[in-house]
């Protein structure tokens, strides 16, 4: 039963295999050239399993210790998982122990597969979702561990490799931009961060930026939701 579910799950994870090996590798190399042993990317990928946050965490580990900022930053970057959870409430009903691992490992990519793809009729849907989660988790851990190991073997000049994080967030930002009808929130995020950076400086602008973003979104809830109704 398990083997059948694994076989059914595998093809659906192939696109993720390509993406996660590449991004995981880049993440591991980035951590390595930042001076961390491969154990860091490996354990962080096992325990956090969230690409955006793991990249940001490298930067935070290189900065002065700021636990409150780290915690709030984590909540803000990961808030979207709340909504994956809400969408999965009924789908994970009655799965018992498998459910806890599936919830633990529900990154963007895993969610998009297990939410949209139904297991074939003769395959146990619990194990199917379990293996989709496990395979994706495995690809990411593998990529980042290998990156952490081979980073030191790279002999070409690696200056500027940290730009992989910038490029990744530019691409994710663009994808959000293309999908959404109302760009108010995207513009708010860019502007509040830029203004707070000018006022508070590179080491202190995150907390004020997060506060301003939440405040602005709360203040403009009515007008933003109104355009949504008009456009749809």
């Amino acid at each position: 039963m398990k083997l059948k579910a694994l076989k059914a799950a595998f093809p659906h994870t192939l696109p993720i295999l390509a993406g996660f090996s590449f991004l995981g590798l880049a993440y591991g190399i980035y951590m390595n050239v930042s001076g961390f042993s491969f154990l860091y990317p490996m354990l962080m990928s096992v325990l956090i399993f969230g690409g955006s946050l793991e990249f940001v965490a490298v930067e935070m580990l290189l900065s002065p210790f700021a636990p409150l900022q780290v915690f709030l930053m984590t909540l803000l970057i990961q808030t979207r998982h709340l909504f994956y959870g809400i969408s999965m409430l009924s789908k994970l009903k009655g799965l018992r122990f498998k459910k806890y691992y599936i919830i633990f490992g529900m990154c963007d990519e895993t969610f998009s597969i297990i939410y949209s793809v139904d297991a074939p009729k003769d395959v146990d849907r619990g194990w199917f979702m379990f293996f989709v989660t496990l395979l994706n988790h495995f690809y990411w851990v593998l990529g980042s561990t290998v990156g952490g190991l081979v980073g030191s073997l790279i002999t070409v000049n690696t200056d500027g490799i940290s730009f992989v994080m910038t490029a990744m967030f530019v691409v994710i930002f663009l994808e959000q931009w293309i999908k959404e009808k109302n760009h108010a929130s995207a513009v708010m995020g860019l502007l509040s961060a830029a203004v707070c950076l000018c006022i508070f400086g590179a080491n202190a602008f995150l907390l004020p930026t997060m506060a301003v973003i939440i405040l602005l979104l709360a203040m403009f809830q009515k007008p933003i939701q109104r355009t949504e109704v008009q456009l749809s």
Binding site: S52, V56, E59, L76, I77, T79, R80, L82, F83, I86, M165, T166, F169, V170, I172, F173, Q176, W177, E180, N182, H183, A184, S185, A186, V187, M188, G189, L190, S192, A193, A194, L197, A202, F205, L206, T209, M210, I213, L217, Q221, I224, Q225
Partner: peptide, 22 residues
């Protein structure tokens, strides 16, 4: 909560782009 969930990610990724350029 639904509203924040729908609109917060764009703002967060905008912030992260700026964060990379800090």
């Amino acid at each position: 909560i639904n509203y924040i969930g729908k609109y917060l990610p764009s703002a967060v990724f905008g912030m992260l782009v700026i964060y990379c350029l800090k």
